[in-house]
């Protein structure tokens, strides 16, 4: 597998005249766990959906150019809205991730589903009805669904929102492990400490523009935090990694 898994060139999405995503170019290669950060309304979700070709856009995205079925094998998408319409059992729900693959019944499929379930700590939930789980458990089941898709690239929109601290950490650990296995992950996050510790690289989006792209410690500098997040914060470098300590809100 060579070349980037995600390749965006001048990607722009307009809503009316206003650009929601403004001329974004970037690439993501195997082995990277990339955090997408930015204040509310910065265009993080829109960028991800446009990159997947789910909404109309200008510019180029390698994923949007693929036929739908091929794209579904190239990238898994975990939307922020956690929809589970029917009371499927968790195992069946996770098996939906195998839809883009030719056979849902084969042994490769069963292996992928089992691996995804155990990765998300859902081994004992297989037969439980997904609609009867707690919000956090549903979130984990849906992440497992995306993992079962076994696409080289995983794009996840705020997967840690609403999870308890331990589940947040273990989810990010799963993403880190995926990247270490040669996959790539693009994940939008609001918890900047989580982003700093678990991502190999951060993208900072502000009013639709990509304003910073680099190592977490470079991107999370006081100037960027002040300009994009209106946040006065100090970065503490602890032995366990960086820790972002917000001090106040700037005007």
């Amino acid at each position: 597998m060579s070349g980037p898994l995600l390749d965006l060139a001048n990607l722009t999405v307009r809503r009316g005249q206003r650009p929601v995503v403004d001329d974004v170019s970037l690439t993501i290669s195997p082995g990277e766990c990339v955090g997408l950060i930015g204040p509310n309304g910065a265009g993080k979700t829109t960028l991800m959906r446009a990159a997947l070709g789910l909404i109309a856009h200008h510019g180029r995205s390698n994923l949007a150019d693929m036929p739908a079925r091929t794209r579904a094998r190239a990238a898994a998408w975990l939307p922020q809205a956690r929809e589970i319409a029917w009371g499927l059992d968790v195992e069946t729900l996770v098996t939906l991730g195998r839809l883009p693959h030719d056979s849902r019944a084969g042994s490769a499929s069963a292996r992928a589903v089992s691996a995804a379930l155990s990765r998300m700590g859902l081994g004992n939930f297989r037969q439980r009805r997904a609609t009867e789980l707690s919000g956090g458990e549903q979130a984990r089941a849906l992440i497992a669904r995306a993992l079962a898709q076994e696409a080289p690239l995983l794009i996840a929109d705020e997967p840690t929102a609403g999870l308890d601290p331990a589940a947040q950490l273990s989810t990010m650990q799963v993403f880190e492990d995926l990247a270490a296995d040669g996959h790539a992950v693009l994940v939008s996050l609001h918890d900047l400490t989580l982003a700093a510790r678990h991502c190999t690289r951060l993208l900072l989006l502000d009013q639709g523009r990509l304003v910073a792209d680099g190592l977490p410690t470079e991107v999370l500098c006081p100037e960027n935090l002040a300009r994009s997040f209106h946040l006065k914060a100090e970065i503490l470098h602890t032995p366990h990694g960086p820790l972002l300590h917000p001090l106040g809100v700037l005007p």
Binding site: R49, L52, L54, A68, R71, A72, A75, A76, W77, L78, P79, A81, E83, I84, A85, W86, L88, L93, L96, G97, L99, P100, L142, R145, Q149
Partner: peptide
């Protein structure tokens, strides 16, 4: 079952 967005991405 997973919503319109997820279905499209599948």
């Amino acid at each position: 079952t997973l919503g319109e967005d997820a279905a499209q991405a599948l």
